[in-house]
C-alpha cells in the first residue's frame, strides 16, 4: 500500500492551499453541472410534469420499468447460478491430474473468454437452432451469459481452490479420502464460500451484461426503456426520452451499488471469520468488472 505514504500530512499552509484548490475545483465541477442543468432547463427537460411520468402509474411506465427490472434480475440470476455450477466443474476439471481432462477443459475456458459476449449471444440465438437446439430470446441471453461467466468463474474458483491451505487437503488424504472426495467435500465448498463476495461482485457484471439482450429482442430493463421511448415519442414527441434513459441508468446504478455493498459486507464478515479468512484481497480484476465479454485469455 504505497498510496498512503506518498505525501506528508499537510501542514497549515498546505491545508489552506488544498482548501483553495478544492474550492476552485468544486466551483468548476458545479459550474459544469450547472451548465448542463441550465441547458436542460432551457430545453424544458426539468419540467416536473416530464419527470412525473416515471411515477405516474396510469401510464404503465413505472410498472413496465419494475417488471423489466425483475426480468433483468431473473436472467442475471439464472445465468449466475448456472455459471457458478458449471464454473465449479470446469475449475475442478482444470485441476485434474489427467491431461485428457485438463486440456479440453482449459480449451473450453479460454475459448469462451476470448469471444465477445455479444457474438456469443448471437451465436446461441442464430446458430444453435440450426443444429436442433431451439432457443428463445431469454434462453439465448441466459445461455450466452452462462457460457461466458462460467469460464470467468472457473478461473476465480480455481484460484480459490489453490488458495486453500494445503493442510486441508493433506489431512483429508490422510484420513483416506480419494481425490474426488477431497475436491467435492473439502476444497470446493471452502473455495466457493471464500469466494462469495467475489461471486456477488460478479453478479454486478452479469446484471450489466444482461443489457446486451437488446440484440436478440429480449425486453430487459434497457430495451424496455427504449420501447417506452419509442411509444411516447410517437404520441407526445421526444419529451420523455431523456427522463427514461436517466431512469434506466439510475435503476442499474442503484441495484448494482446495493449488490456491491452486500459484497463488501460479506467480505468484511468473512475476513473476521477465521475459518474462511484469506490473506489476499478478494476483489474482481478490473478487466472482469468490465463485462461485455471482457476477460484475459
Amino acid at each position: 500500500m504505497s498510496a498512503t505514504v506518498l505525501f506528508d500530512v499537510p501542514g497549515p499552509r498546505g491545508r489552506r492551499r488544498q482548501r483553495i484548490g478544492s474550492a476552485v475545483g468544486l466551483v468548476f465541477v458545479l459550474g459544469l453541472v450547472g451548465l448542463a442543468l441550465w441547458r436542460l432547463g432551457i430545453n424544458g427537460q426539468l419540467d416536473p410534469a416530464r419527470w412525473a411520468i416515471l411515477f405516474d402509474t396510469r401510464t404503465n411506465v413505472p410498472q413496465r420499468l419494475l417488471g423489466a427490472l425483475v426480468d433483468t434480475l431473473e436472467v442475471a440470476a439464472i445465468g449466475m447460478i448456472a455459471a457458478t455450477v458449471l464454473g465449479a466443474f470446469l475449475a475442478v476439471g482444470r485441476l485434474s491430474d489427467h491431461a485428457w481432462v485438463r486440456i479440453p477443459v482449459a480449451a473450453i475456458i479460454e475459448f469462451f473468454r476470448a469471444v465477445p459476449l455479444l457474438v456469443l449471444i448471437l451465436f446461441c440465438f442464430l446458430f444453435l437452432p440450426r443444429v436442433g437446439i431451439s432457443t428463445s430470446a431469454f434462453g439465448a441471453l441466459a445461455l450466452g451469459l452462462t457460457l461466458y461467466n462460467m469460464a470467468v468463474l472457473a478461473e476465480i474458483i480455481r484460484a480459490g481452490i489453490l488458495s486453500i491451505d494445503r493442510g486441508q487437503s493433506e489431512s483429508a488424504y490422510a484420513i483416506g479420502m480419494r481425490k474426488w472426495q477431497v475436491m467435492t467435500f473439502i476444497l470446493v465448498p471452502q473455495a466457493v464460500r471464500r469466494m462469495l463476495p467475489v461471486l456477488i461482485a460478479q453478479l454486478v457484471v452479469l446484471l450489466k451484461d444482461s443489457s446486451l439482450g437488446f440484440i436478440v429482442g429480449y425486453l430487459e430493463l434497457l430495451r424496455t426503456a427504449r420501447s417506452l421511448v419509442e411509444t411516447l415519442n410517437f404520441q407526445f414527441g421526444p419529451i420523455y426520452t431523456f427522463q427514461l434513459y436517466v431512469a434506466a441508468g439510475l435503476i442499474y446504478i442503484v441495484v448494482n451499488l446495493l449488490l456491491s455493498w452486500l459484497a463488501r459486507i460479506l467480505e468484511r464478515r468473512s475476513r473476521r471469520d477465521t475459518k474462511t479468512a484469506t490473506a489476499e484481497k478478494t476483489e474482481l480484476p478490473a478487466d472482469v468488472q468490465m463485462g461485455g465479454g471482457g476477460g484475459p485469455l
Binding site: A49, I53, F55, D56, T59
Partner: peptide, 27 residues
C-alpha cells in the same frame, strides 16, 4: 447513508407523483 438516499428518492417521487404527467392524463 443508503437508507437516507432511498428516503430522499422516495420523497422526490411522491412529490412528482403529485403533479400529473401529460402522458398519464392521456392514458
Amino acid at each position: 447513508r443508503i437508507t437516507r438516499y432511498a428516503a430522499g428518492f422516495a420523497a422526490a417521487g411522491l412529490l412528482l407523483a403529485g403533479c400529473a404527467s401529460e402522458a398519464g392524463n392521456q392514458a
